[in-house]
Design a protein around this nucleic acid. Structure first.
Length: 292
DNA sequence: ATCCAGGTATGCA
DNA sequence: TGCATACCTGGA
């Protein structure tokens, strides 16, 4: 980290989280651009924003940003962390009263929420995610930012925009350790460059239509499309089914040998219109069990 | 060393 | 429809 960054003074956020839940929120596979410093502070980059977040002794969140960014980071954080919406009411609307396992997950990860990331960045990050673990995805997107993004402040590059990616060769993308994903990103960038406004229209389209549109992109299937819509467009009805969800739905709900599409249908009907929010709690819980 | 990881696209029954 | 297989790469 460059030493010449001048950070704004710490300011409190109206959010209280345990260290474990903060870890799950920022480093649990929703976003891939937060890094924990040795003192426990986390530095993250999204859009044109650079911020650091830490916990005060009472587990209250506080933030600070490079001085030149602080004015726009403050409102951006509200959106990113979903502070303007009534999170408690959303969680309460989930069917925890009739689902003991869900109730356990909600209690274990109290305060966990869905991040609202820039749509294009979510698409890029989840195009990188196929059959990779979080540490590897983080490495890929860090290389993408360092190699092809522009610096917001010295030492903190943003992710390249899709317009910028359209001018990068597939071979050059492979140098970011993307493997076969480089082809997907390259071809998606070419398509988006040839279809101005397509991405913005997809972001605001109704869920089903938006998902269909995303699935036409190379390297985007149902799971990636749902992640992009959940984490990049606030579509809480999106219910991404990955290996963890497949595992946990088999183990906790008896859905052994169900296909991903069947599990997705079960999830949407069982958990309701905010199924994606429930999914994040189930996901977090099963990962914790696996690690312990 | 060998296997597999927050999938997708393709080729065959 | 359904199922198997290839696809890059690096860490366990």
């Amino acid at each position: 980290m460059p030493t010449d960054i001048r950070w704004s003074v710490w300011k409190n956020l109206p959010l209280t989280l345990s260290p474990a839940v903060l870890d799950e929120l920022l480093d649990g596979g929703q976003s891939f651009r937060w890094n924990r410093q040795t003192d426990g502070t986390r530095i993250g980059i999204w859009g044109e924003n650079v911020a650091r977040i830490s916990l005060a002794n009472n587990e209250a969140l506080r933030w600070s940003a490079p001085r030149e960014c602080a004015d726009h980071v403050e409102p951006a954080l509200q959106v990113y962390l979903g502070l303007e919406s009534n999170h408690t009411a959303k969680v309460d609307s989930l069917p925890w009263r009739s689902d003991a396992h869900l109730a356990t997950c909600l209690e274990t990860f109290t305060g966990l929420r869905i991040l609202r990331q820039p749509f294009g960045e979510a698409l890029l990050c989840f195009l990188c995610s196929a059959t990779k673990q979080i540490v590897q995805i983080k490495q890929m997107v860090a290389l993408l930012a360092e190699s092809h993004g522009t610096e917001i402040v010295p030492g903190f590059p943003r992710l390249p925009t899709w317009d910028e990616l359209a001018r990068v060769s597939e071979e050059s993308l492979r140098d970011c350790k993307l493997g076969f994903r480089a082809k997907h990103i390259h071809e998606t960038a070419q398509f988006l460059a040839a279809n101005p406004g397509w991405l913005a229209a997809t972001e605001t389209a109704p869920y089903t239509e938006a998902k269909e549109r995303l699935c036409t992109l190379p390297g985007v299937g149902e799971k990636v499309a749902d992640c992009v819509l959940l984490f990049g467009a606030g579509r809480l009805e999106a219910f991404p089914v990955d290996t963890w969800i497949l595992k946990t739905m088999a183990r906790r709900y008896g859905l052994d040998d169900w296909k991903p599409a069947q599990v997705a249908h079960f999830g949407r009907t069982h958990f309701g219109p905010l199924a994606g929010l429930a999914q994040q709690y189930l996901f977090a819980y099963e990962r914790r069990v696996a690690r312990s």
